[in-house]
Write a protein that binds this DNA or RNA. Structure first.
Lengths: 120, 120
DNA sequence: CCAATATCCCTTACACTGTTGGACAAATGG
DNA sequence: CCATTTGTCCAACAGTGTAAGGGATATTGG
């Protein structure tokens, strides 16, 4: 593939990080990805593995936070997009849009049912 | 994955077949996919392999045509979506749309959602 | 007819992505 | 302490994405 292209799952993970802004860590990213992927199920492990690989590729950066004072509130590893990741996301999002539009044109009057993103 | 989900490349191939209607065969599908994937390059072999796998999964059907009276006009293997493939495509296109929208929202309210560009 | 040329189909093999399932770690509350 | 909650991470397998090549069959023109 092109040196800075991403697969579909990686794309969703990048999108989740972007939209979660300051609160992007494993669990919250997992939830967001699940919304995007609905009605499919996504495992938590899949998210962590993908985060690792995205970091290796220099698309995201991570750091550890302090523990929060809640029951079981462990330290979290938070994530943020790097410039490379943001570019890759924009490019693949543009492709996603082209696909969507092409499908719409081809399907003509027939209305596909999509699941709107509902905030939790 | 879900039993009837597809990857990103498979999605583009399905989209190409759908939009090409009566003229969907190896070479034309390859061209269409290249448009969708731009600016990335796509190999012809990749298309054939993917077509094979999609047929194995029951997402597309294929048949051979008669040769056409052009220079080198060989018989073509034409493709058409099966019901299963159309459903899978609609679902993944809906996901593509959700990704696109989420990215747009996150990248700033300053940017217009998207201009309802109506092709003439 | 027969070579040249054009169009198209298919296979093999490998790297990378997607996914599962569970192991391990730290904080809290009783 | 010990059970519970929240969270991170790993090992390993299945599946997708890709390149690189091999061939088959049609028309054209000498």
């Amino acid at each position: 593939m092109g040196s800075d292209s991403v697969g579909q799952f990686e794309q969703m993970v990048l999108t989740a990080i972007l939209s979660l802004r300051d609160d992007a860590y494993g669990v919250s990213i997992h939830q967001k990805v699940q919304q995007l992927a609905a009605p499919r199920d996504v495992s938590l492990g899949a998210v962590y593995v993908t985060l690792d690989r995205l970091e290796d590729k220099g698309m995201v950066r991570s750091w550890l936070t302090e523990p929060t004072p809640e029951r079981g509130g462990r330290a979290k590893r938070c994530y943020q997009l790097e410039a490379l990741g943001e570019r890759a996301l924009q490019e693949s999002a543009a492709t996603a849009r082209r696909i969507w539009e092409t499908v719409q044109e081809a399907l003509g009057g027939r209305r596909p049912k999509w699941n709107p993103v509902r905030p939790k």
